[in-house]
Nucleic acid binder design. Structure first.
Lengths: 197, 197
DNA sequence: TTTCCCCTAAGTAGAAGCCAGTAGGTATTT
DNA sequence: AAATACCTACTGGCTTCTACTTAGGGGAAA
């Protein structure tokens, strides 16, 4: 994917909800969150995007979420219209666009699954997802704050914090620092954690 | 949309998870639910489809959910491959396919929003959604059972039942029968219900 | 260095889950 | 036709889990 490289500082907006979706983005470094503000003031984070991920691709004409850089980030920006026109002739490109959409749908579905479980399962599910997507090191780097995780999982920051501590006590994770987590193997290999007690 | 008409009896499978997504469907009568069974046995309903709605369109090669008829239903079935080939030349068709995908993404996003609210807000949100999509009668017809609603909203059947009763007592809805609900106007016109106490 | 978030800890209160039990309607059986 | 089973929906009591609140410590940014 070629495009214009752009830099965004921590907590700066990349695009806003309801704006015309003229561009498509790919993260090259850093991390991005998409979110919506609800009528009652709460914030729901829709997804996190890490290096390599494509975002801003809503299939419609306007963005359904806002996007912000979580930390200092670099992204490639491409004109959506240009891409769509090219996709008519280049079958590979068209294919890639559909794949990106399929991935996005799967992520949403996965997110729904997370939200109906207990706090512990949500956190484990989130960490497993991050582990799968991150560079295959033993430790997971979390670019986002506890508040971001809370707003993604539909929990409070305190519950996130408590659950991290409990998971460490149970030996499921190691908290190297607050932003570096190590997942123990049995959690990675088993699809699901049934009884941790 | 043209296609092969097919009938499905109540609670019969239309397609299964992980099956090749060879077809695309449009409901002509009845109602359809898509769902996934979680590792711990719970069922998460992803969406309900009513007459006119298109489903089975996952953007990928395999279905990410199973689909069942909620009640005796008729659907039109179209070969996905044929449609995609036609879409290359017919721009309108391509447009329609993207629109359907965009709608699907929006529905998922909406679903995520519902799942982070209180039980009362989830039920109200569900009913508002059904009211918007249904034929514009005063009363909403609910083809699905309380268990279906519970599995869609991530609640228990008891909570659904209790919340329906509470909403009726507060004057937000009228339960004409258990499957016919009338939404009071102020809920329809206001975007959100803040204080019902 | 210093400030300011960010994170963790602990206790209380409330919301939703779980476990019965009841009632009404429909289908099946005798 | 009566009796029975079955399915669906509603209600009450108790338990559990997570939100809310307050407080304090620690680390990153300026």
């Amino acid at each position: 994917m070629i495009g214009t490289p752009m830099r965004f500082a921590r907590n700066t907006e990349i695009y806003g909800e309801e704006e015309a979706a003229e561009h498509l983005y790919q993260v090259t470094s850093g991390a991005v969150r998409t979110y919506k503000i609800l009528e009652d003031g709460r914030r729901q984070i829709g997804a996190f995007y890490l290096p390599g991920d494509i975002f801003g691709f809503e299939a419609g004409d306007t963005h359904i979420s806002s996007a912000e850089a979580i930390c200092e980030s670099q992204v490639l920006m491409v004109r959506r219209s240009a891409l769509m026109i090219r996709a008519i002739h280049e079958k590979d490109l068209a294919r890639q666009l559909w794949d990106a959409t399929a991935l996005e749908l799967r992520r949403f579905q996965n997110h729904v699954m997370l939200l109906i479980s207990s706090a512990e399962q949500r956190v484990i599910g989130f960490l497993r997802d991050m582990a799968r997507r991150a560079t295959k090191n033993a430790a997971i780097e979390l670019p986002m704050s506890r508040q971001d995780i809370a707003d993604y999982l539909g929990l409070t920051i305190e519950t996130i914090s408590r659950t991290f501590t409990q998971l460490e006590q149970k030996g499921v994770i190691s908290l190297l620092t607050s932003r570096r987590v190590e997942l123990r193997d049995h959690v990675l290999f088993h699809g699901f954690v049934r009884n941790l007690d």
